[in-house]
Amino acid sequence: MLDIADLSVVYRGYRGVLKAVDKVSLAVEDNEVFGITGESGCGKSTLAASILRVLPQSAEVTSGRILFRGIDLRSVSEAEMRKIRWKQISIVFQNAMNALDPVYKIKDLLKEPLRVHEGMPDEETKRRVGEVLNLVRISQSRMDSYPHELSGGTRQRVMIAMALICRPQLVIADEFTTGLDVIVQDQILADIEDLRQKLGFAMILITHDLSVILEACDRVAVMYGGRILETADSKSILQDPRHPYTRALLDSMPTIRDAKKKLRSLSGSPPDMLNPPTGCRFMSRCTFATQLCQTDPPNLQVGVGRYSRCHYALDQGFKRR
């Protein structure tokens, strides 16, 4: 449904040109949850913003193609794009408190997208608001509350309700569970799965929390320094990472089965994107790096629908210890 090919996005600042997204390709299928993970500044949010064409002014898409159901999102007019936004592709925002206007009641906030996009009669919007609140399991009595009167989890549910109220085909969720405690996080992820069963929509889930990715996603892309280093289904990425960076990420995550597992952290810091290194982006922090890594690694196919951007992806050295 969504097909991104060779997408590059740069930010132009006074210190130079920053390559935030560098020749990224990915495809999201119908009804799929596609996860994008990576550390801060790796370009995952920029990638999401470029899909909806809501990049800040200093940013520019320099190359690539974004096809959504056969429509080229880079070339449609702004008026067309406004029709696609929310009706077909919606977004769940990162920080629910900041994204909900404090002077409106929940029901008025939820009516806004319907009013803007569907021009619906009042009776119908009322019905839809009630319906969508049911879906996200918020009691109808909360309709007349203001955002500050709700708990963090409920606010996040309101955000989800807002994203779903126009019945989009694709929902982009950017760090939408960050800032919630793990129990609420878990409930919301379970509810999202439930909603997807009922309504049928695809999702792009952006998070730096690997456990969320592994729990909720069908497929995962691991980003680093503006590039996707590994793409795979979430089960195989957990059991058999094919990129040293993915493996480092997994090594830094505690498991429930092996309490005594030593957690390893990576030394060094992500590459300076104003002057990105040549060759493999991860080279400077990679324990397996060799002379060969000075050259750009190819995007190797390492399994069915699995790709890894590492010269040694096909070697067996990356099995988890």
Partner: peptide, 13 residues
Amino acid sequence: ERGFVKAAALLGA
């Protein structure tokens, strides 16, 4: 510059 204003803009306002 607040989040909810940006959000409303994105939503089509």
